[in-house]
Write a protein that binds this DNA or RNA. Structure first.
Lengths: 200, 200
DNA sequence: GTCTATAAATTGATAGAC
DNA sequence: GTCTATCAATTTATAGAC
């Protein structure tokens, strides 16, 4: 990795952070580079010094999402020994930013859905696939750690990730915090049910 | 409803049909009116004779989605007496266009997610909310018809709609027909399980 | 009533000054 | 190495011809 000057590195990070927010709030296509620059408090048009294209910026944004998500999973894994507890906390986690979810949807889910429209060969679509894989792999590991056979654990992982992403989509579309809260609680209960036979 | 000349009505319908396809394939923001006109085989720039703005076109597109969806639900209701059969067929229905789902995602889900970014006061966001309501209301009715109390039927409806929309999102993000097929089968089995106690 | 030419605005991107 | 002025292309929208 190339080491850039401190000031440069900082502004770059500010641009990425601004883009992460704006892609979530407005979507990828609707967000202009001028708006990103404005929120990052960087001169407009100057974005191209840090990123060759808008797509290149989006690539870094998705990578950053991936990095952050892995860190969250690592933290859960470290903090809790019981995989079921980890899964429960994972399901609950969107509630920590419930208002944001209701207003803007799932930052990962909506971005993935949008960039998938760029076509399967798109670099961004591939990055989106990787981001979703992080969810699937970690949740599969947790189910497997509960004594569930790998294939079934893989299916349960898809059930769980699909259900949570769907709940977030629905809560956003219906602008309902109640839907978000209730659905996530029900998914949490489902986790307990689907793992109950396996443990003890 | 105002009756327009035949030719006009036909071209209008072609424009709506073209926009429905393109919004699904490319998304709302990415789709230009020129592209819509091209696919509808209407002179470019001529779209404004039929629709005042791009947003007005999108409104009609969502209304048309809503109309089509209601018709599908009516057909299911008429063709099958058993609500559980209706729900099973509803869950399976995305498989009829599996390739399209894997490639472009859910035409309703992705469009809703995109227009929700326009803000809660947006006409399009409200139309998206109505579209999702059609799903929730019909599925709730089916669960209720199975003898499930209204509040619980409402929650099960959100479970079901969320799970299916999530499965479609995941299948698209992972570009996996296998995920689509397996997840929908598992949701179908879940429907049987969650309604088993209630009937007979 | 139908369509074409064109305007007006936006936006991604670049060349080059400091 | 950092940033400003500007270009080129795209796209929504309109005025007005046919």
């Amino acid at each position: 990795m190339v080491v850039a000057p401190y000031a440069s590195e900082e502004k770059r990070a500010q641009l990425v952070a601004a883009a992460m927010q704006l892609f979530h709030e407005q979507g990828f296509q609707r967000t202009t580079l001028a708006h990103v620059a404005e929120r990052a408090k960087v001169p407009p048009g100057n974005v191209y010094y840090y990123f060759k294209t808008k797509e290149a910026l989006a690539e870094v944004v998705i990578s950053e999402h991936e990095r952050t998500l892995r860190a969250r999973f690592d933290a859960l894994t470290t903090a809790h020994r019981d995989p079921r507890t980890r899964l429960r906390l994972f399901v609950r986690s969107p509630l920590e930013a419930a208002d944001s979810v209701v207003q803007f949807g799932c930052s990962h889910g909506s971005l993935c859905q949008e960039v998938e429209k760029l076509g399967r060969d798109s670099t961004l679509a591939k990055a989106a696939t990787r981001l979703m894989s992080v969810y699937l792999e970690w949740t599969q590991e947790q189910f497997h750690a509960l004594g569930i056979e790998r294939r079934e654990a893989r299916a349960l992982a898809a059930d769980l990730v699909g259900a949570t992403k769907g709940a977030l989509l629905l809560a956003n579309a219906m602008r309902s915090r109640e839907i978000l809260t209730r659905q996530l609680r029900r998914i949490e209960a489902w986790v307990d049910g689907s793992t109950a036979r396996q443990v003890r």
